[in-house]
Design a protein around this nucleic acid. Structure first.
Length: 425
RNA sequence: GGAGGGUUGGCUGAGCGGUCGAAAGCGGCGGUCUUGAAAACCGUUGUGGGGCUCGCCCCACCGGGGGUUCGAAUCCCUCACCCUCCGCCA
């Protein structure tokens, strides 16, 4: 949610920002919001006048009754005022709800450092880093892993459906080694690991911004729950409706969870194997910071994810996403893509975003010096999240990068402590 | 799944339909005392919105949402969450 005061007082600034995001209906929502907000303020003024009269007269009635006097005339008059107030209240309520909905439909504004663009072609390659030298002609990860008995797509299809995978044996060992390595590195960097629900309620999904914007991308299950599309939802909601101690910021968390995405309409070779699946594991970083710390934290988190890719010896690049390719909630976003040599294409393995105070306003997560027990003004915190890293595509890139002439996988040194060996057969 | 009990300012907790934005305590802030600190004592201390002759004034908020009433923290309905007991259960 944007700062309501900003929207009211600088609507054209907001309009310019919203436009660059290229989100359908966002500008219409802004216009509707400005109109409704003005109408609401006028209505409120009228209503408050009536309420003030009602309150004063009711008080007078109480005083007279205590004094043993009659108040029938006053009561009749207040009843009329009250009835009129009730009518206005009804209109006010409808308007208030409308404003609330419209506010949730306004996307976050891009940061000044974000290039304005119209499509993914306008994303900027910040840098590209080479990986290890690889064997001549690698086999695509899906056939390689199937052949080795590490991946069983057919079983995944039987159990759940298309887009669901079964990892087996050494495939699972590799995944777990990566997860352990990622989490250990994040723990070193002060990210507290949490294990969280993978079902979230509507309030949580709305607070982080999945609703109403991405309704169709989540699986909805009974009892009003959503399967989380990213642990960002669960972890960020750790502090919904809370006042944090500003002196304790930044607060950093990491979590490994499965993520569930409907990916409706995705077909073809782009989605083969581990490229795009409905359920995947991901290690996620989440940070709560002050306004001042936020953008430095974005760089820190991005570099941390890059270190993982470097240590794994993968060729990768960092993209600064242009205004139109950022999501609804983001003010600035980097994507990290690992090279898939057998597919001759980049695979997105991480996305690190700064949400500014946009998400915190929805979350009602504020901070003040001294925390909840202290006095003083609260400020919305700033929130960030990023993957470090998404497992399936990282595995795909590794498998295609580290194939040896002997048909084994010769894995990078950093994984040896977690794998117990440097080669997988 | 069944039966009860709860949800009140940053925290604990009291609140007969009117004098309740809400007792008391804790915490925070300021002061007195002190070489300094602690203790003690005194004062002060919720959020959001709107008006203004900038001293103030008004409105809303006691888990969310409705309702009854001249008037609701208090009565009614409803939803959510928490607790206790019973049942079931990895």
């Amino acid at each position: 949610m944007l700062d309501p005061t900003l929207v009211r007082e600088h609507p054209e600034t907001v309009r310019r920002g919203v436009r660059t995001k290229r989100i359908d209906g966002a500008e219409a929502a802004l216009d509707a919001l400005l109109l409704a907000d003005e109408e609401h303020r006028l209505l409120r003024r009228e209503l408050e006048g009536l309420q003030a009269r009602r309150n004063a007269d009711s008080k007078e009635i109480g005083a007279r009754k205590r004094a043993g006097e009659g108040a029938d005339d006053l009561m009749r008059r207040v009843a009329e005022v009250s009835a009129e107030a009730k009518r206005l209240e009804e209109r006010e309520r409808a308007l208030r709800e409308r404003i609330g909905r419209l506010r949730l439909e306004l996307p976050n504004l891009p940061h000044d450092s974000v290039p304005v663009g119209e499509s993914p072609h306008d994303n900027v390659v910040v840098h590209e880093r080479p990986g290890v030298d690889q064997v001549g002609d690698p086999e695509p990860h899906w056939s390689y892993m199937e052949r080795k008995g590490w991946l069983d797509q057919e079983a995944g299809h039987r159990i759940a459906g298309s887009g669901f995978m079964v990892l087996r044996g050494n495939g699972v060992r590799l995944a777990r080694a990566l997860e352990s390595y990622f989490l250990a590195r994040l723990a070193d960097q002060g990210f507290e690991e949490v294990r969280v629900p993978v079902l979230a309620n509507e309030a949580s999904a709305t607070a982080t911004g999945q609703l109403p914007d991405k309704e169709g991308q989540m699986y909805r299950v009974d009892d009003g729950f959503y399967l989380i599309p990213t642990s960002e939802v669960s972890v960020t909601n750790l502090h919904r409706d809370q006042i944090l101690d500003a002196d304790a910021l930044p607060i950093r968390y990491c979590a490994l969870t499965p993520c569930f995405r409907r990916e409706a309409g995705s077909h073809g070779k782009e989605v083969r194997g581990l490229n795009r699946v409905h359920q995947f594991d991901k290690v996620e970083m989440v940070a709560f910071t002050t306004a001042e710390q936020g953008y430095a934290m974005l760089e820190t988190m991005t570099e941390l994810a890059e270190e993982l890719l470097s240590a794994l010896g993968l060729r990768y690049r960092r993209l600064l996403m242009c205004s139109a390719d950022m999501g609804f909630t983001q003010a600035k976003k980097y994507d990290l893509e690992a090279w898939s040599p057998a597919q001759d294409r980049w695979l997105e393995v991480s996305s690190i975003s700064h949400l500014g105070d946009f998400q915190a306003r929805r979350l009602q997560t504020r901070a003040r010096p001294g925390g909840g027990g202290a006095s003083g003004r609260t400020q919305p915190v700033h929130t960030l999240n990023g993957s470090a890293l998404a497992l399936p595509r990282t595995i795909a890139a590794l498998v295609e990068t580290y194939q040896t002439a002997e048909g084994e996988l010769a894995l990078p040194d950093v994984l040896v402590p977690y794998l117990g060996s440097e080669r997988l057969r």
